[in-house]
Nucleic acid binder design. Structure first.
Length: 433
DNA sequence: TCTGGGGTCCTAGGACCC
DNA sequence: TCTGGGGTCCTAGGACCC
């Protein structure tokens, strides 16, 4: 194996052990590893409750598997803490953790990846803090434990993908919560893996495809003909082939921070919706949520997409899971225009099926630094709409979303009231009185 | 998995243009 | 018209991640 030409650095991938559950444990003065605790979201459409996080002790004492995800699967036991999520608390903790990382690496070398994971390029700074990358990892773990009470796991690699696999496959199961993969240990650490879904980027579908091709381990993948992989799975297949060799040529430095290219909200409804008016109410609410986020971020959208997922009964009847259609429009972030376009799309494609899932996405975003007035409507009227929306946003920002909802949202069909205060679909944890 | 939510990226096929 | 070929853009759908 010749890895001489491959980029080689020192990368940490750091994540938090049972992050939400740990934050809740710390807030209550417990050790996150030792208290049996689950974070349970009981938002309206979670069908009785969705478990967002399970502490290590809860897994151990009650033999809960990592994939226990429903309230109905939880034991009834006084010892088990069951607490509601506070998404805003977790966001705040995440920011504090990344601040600590920045004490060990330059600003541009810290890449928050999700609410509980960050990539840190330690190539240029690790020597300042210890005699080996592993020792530095231990120092960072200790610091976070001391300052925030949280336990972190660290994957170390010569490139980001090695660090990611070291984290996912090894760090979580070792005593010191540290795993390492290097070019020299790829065959030993990556090739034996036979549950391909453990590999970042391989899900159920892709694993099944590989199995059908006779690929059952990462060693099989590494020794397969890459041209055939490309033919069957495209560039994604080639990327995974590279992963099997521990190769990752992504140059984090050169990549601009990818600001999200789309803004969208979606919702699984608490029951099947049948009437046009009821479904359109939900579409309107979600559309307005998207519009508010666009305005908040100073963006306008030039393309709206509506996805409608049918109920299981309707899927069985029609053999179709739903539809998804987009519409190019002139740039806007206004409630009324967005709702109108969404309703147009809905009426065009809906044929009476009962509905369980609705999502609205805004893409082709542009900065909201000019006002494009529609040629076909009274300009003054449009400006008034914009001003009204701006006032509504300000009130929502200051006092919370529930202070202002349209009368229609108060009918039985509306879900906006119940969704207020949710962050990522779960309780934000702030109370607005 | 009888239904969590917010994202990103890739691809096949069609429309359109020269 | 029993009509070439290549490039680009767009759309709908799929797959995956946390």
């Amino acid at each position: 194996m010749f890895y001489d030409d491959e980029p080689r650095g020192v990368f940490f991938l750091i994540d938090n052990k049972s992050f939400y559950a740990s934050c809740e444990a710390v807030q209550r003065g417990f050790n996150p590893l030792k208290v049996p605790l689950v974070v349970l979201s009981e938002a309206e459409n979670t069908n009785g409750g969705l478990v967002l996080a399970t502490s290590p002790a809860a897994k151990k004492i009650f033999h809960l598997k990592a994939n226990v995800s429903r309230k109905r699967d939880l034991p009834i036991d006084q010892r088990l803490w069951i607490v509601p999520p506070r998404m805003n608390l977790y966001i705040e903790k995440n920011i504090q953790i990344n601040q600590i990382f920045r004490e060990y690496a330059a600003e541009e070398d810290v890449w928050p990846y999700s609410i509980d994971e960050s990539i840190v390029d330690m190539t240029h700074s690790w020597r300042l803090f210890g005699n080996s990358p592993r020792e530095v990892a231990r120092t960072i773990q200790k610091k976070i434990r001391e300052e925030l009470g949280l336990y972190t796991t660290v994957g170390i690699g010569d490139n980001p993908v090695q660090a990611k696999l070291a984290l996912d496959i090894y760090a979580k199961h070792t005593r010191d919560f540290i795993g390492e993969i290097h070019y020299e240990t790829v065959s030993q650490k990556i090739w034996p893996i036979s549950d391909l879904t453990e590999i970042w980027g391989i899900g159920e579908r892709t694993a099944r495809k590989f199995n059908k091709m006779g690929i059952h381990t990462m060693a099989d993948l590494a020794h397969y003909n890459p041209y055939q992989i490309k033919a069957r799975l495209g560039v994604i297949g080639l990327q995974l082939y590279a992963v099997a060799w521990g190769v990752d040529r992504s140059q984090l430095k050169n990549k601009p921070i990818v600001k999200s290219q789309s803004i969208g909200n979606s919702q699984v409804l608490p029951k099947d919706y049948r009437s046009q008016a009821a479904i359109e109410t939900v579409i309107k609410e979600i559309g307005e949520q998207v519009a508010a986020r666009l305005r908040h971020q100073g963006k306008q959208t030039q393309c709206l997409a509506l996805s409608v997922g049918f109920s299981y009964a309707a899927i069985e009847d029609t053999g179709c899971s739903g539809f998804s259609h987009g519409l190019s429009i002139s740039a806007t972030n206004q409630d009324r225009e967005i709702t109108e376009q969404l309703h147009f799309l809905f009426r065009k494609y809906w044929e009476g099926q009962s509905v369980r899932h609705v999502s609205v996405y805004a893409t082709k975003l542009v900065a909201d630094n000019y006002r494009e007035l529609s040629l076909f409507e009274d300009g003054e009227q449009q400006v008034k709409h914009q001003e009204l929306n701006q006032v509504i946003d300000e009130i929502r920002d200051r006092f919370g979303f529930t202070k202002l909802v349209y009368a229609r949202s108060l009918t039985a069909d509306g879900t906006a009231m119940k969704r207020a205060g949710l962050v990522g679909g779960h309780n934000g944890g702030n109370s607005y009185g």
